[in-house]
Amino acid sequence: MIEFRNIDFGYDEKLVLRDVSFDIDPTESVVIMGPSGSGKSTVLRLILGLECPQRGEIRIDGRNICVMKEKDKQELRKSIGMVFQDGALFDSRTVGENVGYYLIEHTGLSWQEIERRVREMLGFVGLDASEIIDKLPEELSGGMQRRVAIGRALLSTDPKIMLYDEPTTGLDPQSTENVLTLINKLTRERSISTVVVTHQIADALGVAKRFIVIHEGEVAFDGDFVGLRDCRDDRVRNFLGPFRASMDLVAEKKFMNGV
């Protein structure tokens, strides 16, 4: 359960988020959309407790993360998985060590067992494990790094919340499909809250039924697909732009595929 209550936040004096409020239930998936620089990544950072708001309250599972002690925050973060926008892979560790990071740090599993799960996960995100497991992240292409980052976030023992910052940007259609399937699978099987930040309208429709549009730090829209398509708010209409016309088409296709 994620609750944002009237959040004001700025990295310096200038506010990046203004009076942002929303609730995300356990088992619910939400897509956050908005123009570049509108504050989407910032919302995810706040959920992780990496930043604290100037005003308002953020509750994760009923607990106000901003008044928590550093130790409790660490404990809480173990149950939150995050895919950073730029991947943020540990560049001096191998792909295997990156993907297995959570298990290495927080479980007493043997390296054999961890490696088995890492290989499985790499296969899951469409990468050839035996080829890249001992490579450094910099030896991979951008799209491969992104998938390694997703694998790393997914391979923890028991996440309750998953945050994805533009997980499909820069991926080919097949990998995009895999990643979206993966996100859906995880959301359904483990009943976790999922927040996906994305620009891809088609992807957005594939992973969630609820959409939040952020515009210059304010929530411009919060609702379902039909509401989004028919939204009269200029900020939302401008953001969707040419996509609005094709939204029905995209939706039809998605629904036909049974998503």
């Binding site: 173990k78 950073f84 730029d86 540990f90 740090e105």
Partner: peptide
């Protein structure tokens, strides 16, 4: 600067 410290924090590591 490459967000690796934040990534570390996101795994519950100080």
């Amino acid at each position: 600067s490459s967000n690796q410290l934040d990534a570390m924090r996101s795994f519950g590591i100080d």
